[in-house]
Design a binder for these strands. Structure first.
Length: 829
DNA sequence: GTGGTTCATATTTTT
DNA sequence: TATGAACCAC
């Protein structure tokens, strides 16, 4: 149990925030003479972060403490005081969304569009820019293509098969993630430590080396390479590095806790010149360890960058006191934190009149469906305004789950009750099949040597070019030392491929050549509105937008989907239209392809208020008035797999995830768990999450759902407050006793198990319902089910029973949900 | 090439 | 359970 003491926190909150206001008033009244509106309203810590321009600075910014605000103000300050020109600031983010937001906000602060900050972007975007300039130093041409995971896997698969490895037992995806892991640590094949040589059946390193060779041959690189190549170029070309070190006078890094080793090395190289590096982050929100992020980077900052100043942003502007206190209580369970104590002066919520806001609410349910149903009802109730709260609309509510499969129960439920919802995450626009196909066409047109793209489109739509024809093309290309497209052209010329396929291939090859001419001629397209006739009038040019349309039409790709009568086809055509529309904001196809390989976001702009459903990971950086955190059960959250794979480190990352989840809430935070959940089709009994026990009791209110478990006719008084009070001090027991474990069904189960000398409820670790518990039933038994009523057991198979119900007909039911019908006692369930 | 079948498999996800 | 990939038969 946490030792968090709220009275201290509130006192600290009150006094510091007063001081904050006083000081901010003083400081912002102009130190530097000129007007500095961008400093308005900053608190002392934020101001310090803005003013501490020289030398290394670590801005430790807790959840909701206005770090983006401080970061953008810092940039505005650098620019408006003349410390740096826009192109002398290197500002790095992880996502395009963050980069865009920063650009907008800086522009806003300065009262003018922040154009001319060429080095504000994601690690990857900036690396692409650097790599295009100096590609030859990495053995590439400057028009190299960037492979996505899909391309990467196909390439790896080819290599695996060529190495005569069974790609069933050793799948390409696995190799891909191993290689990614090495690249995250900036390890070239030669530098992979011997400890890792056993990877991928001892063939990993060898395949990694081959893969790199292939990439160079293809004039391509994957995401990891973008960083790695630039690091190597810098390491091997001191002059060039020195030039950039001089150039970037000030470096800013957002979400520093998410950096991996490669990114850290990259930053350290560039910062070694002026040493003006400002990293912003929160060690407590490091949740991407599994993809290479090193919390160590932020923990070590002061050692890595000598003379570093650490500025802590601790005033939280987002959440109410109870929510903050609950989050703090949980995160305190982690060792080796840099330590921050967040405080708030948000005494009243916008939606609740309670001082300090609503307590964090905790509730247990019988199973996952019950949980979803309750959340649905609660959301509807919130819309009406419940328990002294003002109404909270769907737009202000989010449900954050640990794993995306949890979303399903909610989607099902919300569809049933007609509650509008949106899912964040899932397949992104640029990952959809039709988009990737279309882009592959563009890629081949722009770079005829892009073999991977050619492979993708050569028989899409179907041109009668099956495996055999494609192998012929491969052979032709290889024996002539040319790319696949050129190989295909030779096949056409020499009639190596005849018949229908040959004809079609000729059309394709000719088409590609023609389309290519449309972009590589003497034309320059500036924008989609440009006239179609070139200045010399000789060649009719088309804008890249029109060219895209021409390519899709003439290749037969559009027709392919028009003729497709599957229900998805119209949607796909819609997406293609959107793709073409997206082209308009780029100058040309190349520019588009370049950005698209790095841009993966997909903001939909719908109007209707909807409840948001997403993973905890996706929620980082967001905030909502009301948050639901379902599925807090050991094994699900914290995830068993995390704990198995990474032990205590994994558990701590899960705990940070819990912290991130709670701190997304501004006003109301509701945590819930279910006593039973179906995992891979098997019903499992679940223990409440250990994180629930870490919530400080003083800030938690245990809810009891009214009459959910068939307490009809007052036959069972089991959910009575009496039992709640007699519960131990431990929160989950209280929540559990309030309903799940106290439901007649649970007690009956316990009773059944008790007779057999099985475990007691409090010791019940996650256990699969075993046949023994079920074997209470045999064929011919009369049983009762909560939903289906009375019936007769027709068949027993493991934990599954076939029941012929009197009213509901025959069903397959898990034994857990049945009670023997003749039994005396409670109404079942 | 398609369609049906079997089989394995099963967090978190950006670039 | 349920989804996707891969294989086989036509």
């Amino acid at each position: 149990m946490s030792s968090y003491d709220d009275s201290d926190a509130f006192e600290a909150a009150a006094s510091s925030s007063l001081a904050a206001r006083a000081m901010s008033a003083r400081t912002s009244s102009g130190l530097t003479g000129g007007p500095q509106p961008y400093l308005d309203g900053l608190n002392p810590a934020q101001l310090e972060a803005v003013h501490q321009l020289d030398g290394p600075v670590l801005m430790l910014a807790g959840a909701g403490t206005g770090k983006t605000r401080a970061l953008t103000a810092r940039i505005a300050h650098l620019l408006s005081t003349g410390h740096a020109r826009p192109n002398e600031i290197l500002a790095v983010t992880f996502t395009n969304k963050a980069a865009r937001e920063m650009k907008n906000r800086v522009g806003h602060l300065l009262g003018q569009p922040a154009e001319g900050m060429p080095w504000l972007g994601t690690f990857h975007a900036i690396c692409v820019k650097l790599l295009r300039r100096h590609a030859e130093l990495a053995g590439l041409k400057s028009n190299f293509t960037i492979l996505d995971t899909d391309d990467q896997n196909r390439l790896l698969k080819q290599l695996i098969i060529a190495a005569e490895i069974d790609d069933k037992r050793w799948p390409a995806r696995a190799l891909g993630s191993i290689i990614d892991g090495w690249k995250n640590r900036a390890l070239t094949p030669e530098k992979v430590p011997t400890a890792d040589h056993g990877a991928f059946n001892h063939r990993g390193v060898e395949l990694y080396a081959q893969y790199q060779t292939r990439l160079t041959e293809l004039n391509a690189c994957d995401f990891g390479d973008l960083l790695m190549h630039v690091i190597r170029i810098f390491q091997e070309n001191e002059d060039l590095l020195a030039q950039y070190q001089r150039w970037f006078r000030y470096i800013l890094v957002d979400e520093y806790q998410d950096t991996n080793v490669a990114q850290y090395l990259w930053l350290r190289l560039l910062a070694a010149g002026h040493k003006n590096i400002c990293c912003v982050g929160d060690d407590d929100q490091s949740i991407y360890g599994w993809r290479g992020a090193e919390v160590g980077n932020i923990l070590r900052f002061e050692k890595d960058f000598e003379g570093a100043k650490v500025v802590r942003l601790e005033q939280n502007y987002r959440s109410t006191g109870h929510i903050l206190a609950a989050a703090s209580g949980v995160i305190e369970g982690n060792k080796g934190r840099l330590g921050k104590t967040l405080f708030t002066d948000k005494e009243h919520g916008n939606y609740s009149n309670t001082v300090g806001g609503e307590k964090v609410r905790l509730i247990g349910h019988w199973d996952g469906d019950e949980e979803a149903r309750w959340v649905g009802e609660e959301i509807e109730a919130m819309g009406q305004g419940t328990r002294g709260m003002d109404p909270i609309g769907p737009n202000e509510i989010a449900i954050l789950v640990r794993a995306s499969h949890q979303m399903r129960a909610f989607e099902d439920r919300f569809l049933t009750i007609g509650l509008p919802y949106r899912v964040i995450g899932g397949p992104r626009f640029y990952e959809r099949m039709e988009i990737r196909d279309a882009m592959a066409y563009f890629r081949v047109v722009v770079s005829p040597d892009d073999d991977l793209a050619f492979e993708r489109i050569v028989n899409t739509p179907k041109r009668g070019l099956g495996d055999k024809a494609q192998q012929t093309i491969q052979r032709m290309a290889r024996s002539n030392g040319v790319g696949l497209l050129e190989g295909a052209r030779l096949c056409v010329e020499t009639q190596a491929i005849g018949g229908k396929g040959g004809k079609e291939l000729r059309v394709l090859v000719d088409g590609l050549a023609r389309w290519r001419q449309m972009i590589t001629g003497p034309l320059r397209q500036v924008g989609p509105t440009d006239d179609l006739i070139e200045e010399d009038g000789a060649i009719k040019g088309v804008s890249h937008v029109e060219l895209a349309e021409i390519i899709l039409d003439e290749s037969g790709y559009t027709a392919h989907w028009q003729n497709d009568k599957t229900p998805e086809a119209p949607g796909r055509l819609e997406n293609l239209k959107e793709l073409v529309k997206a082209l308009e904001s780029f100058e040309n196809l190349q520019g588009f392809l370049e950005h698209v390989s790095l841009i993966m976001d997909n903001e939909s702009d719908d109007q209707e208020p909807k409840v948001t459903l997403m993973t905890l990971h996706a929620a980082k950086g967001l905030e909502f008035p009301a948050i639901f955190l379902p599925g807090w059960e050991d094994g699900l959250f914290p995830s068993q797999r995390s704990m198995d794979e990474s032990g205590i480190t994994g558990l701590e990352e899960e705990r940070r995830l819990a912290y991130v989840g709670i701190t997304r809430a501004e006003e109301v935070c509701t945590i819930s768990f279910a006593g039973n959940r179906r995992v891979y089709g098997q019903w499992q009994s679940q223990m409440p999450s250990r994180f629930i026990d870490e919530l400080p009791e003083a800030h938690v209110e245990v809810l009891t759902p009214p009459g959910l478990y068939g307490h009809q006719g007052g036959m069972s008084a089991s959910a009575s407050p009496v039992e709640q009070t007699m519960a131990g001090s431990n929160l989950h027991e209280r929540a559990a006793r309030a309903d799940v474990y106290n439901s007649p069904g649970w007690r009956r189960l316990q009773a059944n198990q008790g007779q057999r000398g099985l475990r007691q409820p409090s010791e019940a670790k996650t256990m699969t319902i075993d046949a023994e518990a079920v074997s209470a039933f045999s064929i011919g038994d009369r049983v009762f089910h909560q939903k289906f009523g009375y019936g007769e057991v027709m068949h027993v198979e493991g934990d599954k029973l076939a029941i012929e119900f009197d009213k509901a007909g025959s069903k397959h039911v898990v034994g857990r949900f049945l009670v023997a019908a003749g039994d005396s006692g409670d109404v079942p369930f």
